[in-house]
């Protein structure tokens, strides 16, 4: 959802905010086998920019929050897979259904992240459904 931000961000701010999403994007790729990597990478970037301008902080927080739900979903998928490979758990319809669901949610997040990174780079403010509201409640001007 495109919405108006409190002020018009400068080019430098737009670049940093956009990098927040790119960071989480790279982390999603790198973190596919170990979902915690996503969160750690985005969190480090968030820490680095927590004293940045409002626009930068806002978008870094939105990127970080979106990683939490992925972490939960992907962790379950990861440990389920580990149990199948190394323990007595067998592949089942439940497992395949869960992995497809997780894949679909990761894909939606992935596309949304790319789109938001591009728009943010142009200085356009994108507020995600639910995550945008949550970010508004957390980040102070």
């Amino acid at each position: 959802m495109v919405s108006t931000f409190a002020y018009k961000p400068g080019d430098h701010e737009a670049e940093k905010a956009s990098n927040g999403y790119l960071m989480s994007l790279i982390a999603v790729i790198a973190g596919l086998p170990l979902p915690i990597i996503n969160l750690i990478a985005t969190f480090i970037f968030y820490l680095g920019n927590r004293k940045g301008t409002y626009f930068v902080r806002w978008h870094c927080t939105q990127a970080l929050l979106s990683q939490f739900s992925l972490l939960a979903m992907n962790s379950v998928g990861f440990w389920w897979t580990v149990s199948i490979v190394f323990k007595d758990v067998e592949i089942s319809n439940q497992y395949i259904s869960y992995m497809i669901t997780v894949f679909l949610f990761n894909l939606i997040e992935f596309i949304a992240t790319i789109y938001t990174a591009i728009q943010t780079r142009k200085g356009i403010h994108i507020s995600w459904w639910f995550y945008g509201d949550l970010t508004n409640a957390i980040v102070r001007k």
């Binding site: 979903m73 089942s92 319809n93 395949i96 497809i100 949550l134």
Partner: peptide, 26 residues
């Protein structure tokens, strides 16, 4: 409103899972 949206996201997740579960993937 925030909790309602969270609930909707969780509901969409489980609804997707339930729909996919109807297929015999094996």
């Amino acid at each position: 409103k925030l909790f309602l949206k969270l609930f909707i996201i969780v509901a969409i997740f489980f609804a997707t899972l339930w729909c996919l579960r109807q297929v015999d993937w094996m």
